[in-house]
Nucleic acid binder design. Structure first.
Lengths: 250, 250
DNA sequence: CTATGTGAAGGGGTTCACAGCC
DNA sequence: GGCTGTGAACCCCTTCACATAG
């Protein structure tokens, strides 16, 4: 599972017109936890489609997505009733509905700032360019990188950021620079008009309200694993120490 | 209090062995959400220490970590009382206590399987080798990669996995192979004795109970951003449409 | 008087179990 | 009969507010 999914925006504009009646809201608000799983369902559906499966039950889709079926059905219920009782879901139809809800029926232009080892890997990552995103520019502040071609794109100077964002209507930026430079890059991105940032630098970013930041942090993930690994080791020791403790031994 | 003993599963799978008995002392159980933030606090503390700050309040540390102070204090309270009322926290002391709780007072050996663009970036990532982890081997199934040196380590055949894991006592593995190969790699890792996996492949992994899997998925993160970005656009349109904000439209 | 540590209240998310429809 | 869609119970996490200690 992805890291804790708190963190996201402050955009929290209460769109709640609410007052008075139960009038249908313009946009249902989907729980954040559900939003984080929709892409997983979409991928599972794509995988089923590739195997020429046209229809599936909530149980099957849930298994493919790695969740339980109750959760899957509850999640899908926030989008609407796209299944057929007693039958299941049409793979293509549900795929489209989820893609539409996420907003990836058309491609989003994305820029990557920081073309070091990680930035190059991201630029080459096919998943980027396939599922709803198109890398339109690579930027780096270091002169040696500039002008080189990575993944078919020329690396351009960081100073061109604002110009590119405006020209290509970019609203999503990826930061893969060292931690010390991350805040400056974020500031420049926000100033240029970007309102969603995916941050790979191990640094806390300060951004104004209305800008979303998601963080991917390798060493944090490893440390979380280490914590549980430590406990496993401790438990094993304990079990050896006082062999019993558990009644089921019989 | 001794809440349910139910071992929660951290990540996707891993229904831990329901260790019975209500022994509470051995290891207090720290909420998963808190565990996920401890590494963030540790990094913030390290950052403070580098600036020669020896003491800090919960407010200062919380700001550095990007959370609010109430949450920080609550989190730290699960570890014990390591602060001084009316004063704050000693940076070095608290750092050590958190590192000890996470289990990163000594380095964990890690192997990386799949030395493509991403694998090479991970191997070169200094954060890996600094904060409690040491990359001991790089493996790849493709002959052309084998024997090459990446980040000072020779790339070895995937077939050597079990041997290396045993020799180096590896319990944490990183998967950076294409999605189609990920499950096979995971199976081999588990068979070799690895019990924690960090998965970069866009695939759902099935692992037996007791094995932890954490997933880092680039396109999922982007899609979550896209969802919010779509809504921002929709809201902006709306605002333009019916210029009035609230209006009961009498 | 200051800032930590913590019961208690409040909100979300997951799970259950069944009503509703095919 | 089977499977979806969903209210309700349950549980965890966050936030508040203050007792507590220096």
């Amino acid at each position: 599972m992805a890291p804790a999914l708190k963190e996201q925006s402050v955009t929290a504009r209460s769109t709640n017109t609410g007052e008075g009646s139960g009038a249908q809201d313009p946009h249902r608000d989907i729980p954040e936890a559900t939003v984080a799983r929709l892409p997983v369902y979409l991928r599972a559906l794509t995988s089923l489609a590739e195997r020429n499966i046209v229809s599936c039950s909530s149980e099957e889709l849930a298994t493919a997505a790695g969740v339980n079926s109750a959760k899957l059905r509850k999640d899908l219920s926030y989008l609407g009733s796209y299944g057929t009782r007693g039958v299941g879901y049409d793979v293509d139809y549900l795929s489209y509905q989820i893609a539409r809800e996420i907003g990836v029926t058309h491609d989003w232009p994305v820029i990557i700032v920081g073309i070091g080892n990680l930035g190059q890997a991201l630029a080459n990552f096919s998943g980027f360019s396939s599922r709803g995103f198109r890398t339109v520019a690579l930027l780096d502040a270091a002169a040696p990188m500039q002008g080189r071609t990575v993944a078919g794109l020329e690396v351009r100077p960081f100073a061109d950021l604002a110009e590119i964002v405006a020209a290509e209507q970019v609203s999503i930026g990826v930061i893969s620079v060292p931690a010390t430079a991350a805040q400056d890059v974020a500031d420049a991105m926000v100033a240029a008009g970007i309102s969603s940032i995916l941050n790979f630098a191990p640094a806390v970013l300060n951004v104004p309200p209305g800008v979303d930041v998601r963080k991917v942090d390798l060493s944090i993930e490893l440390q979380i694993l280490a914590y549980h690994e430590s406990r496993k080791a401790a438990e094993a020791d304990e079990t050896v120490d006082n062999g019993s403790e558990e009644g089921i031994t019989a």
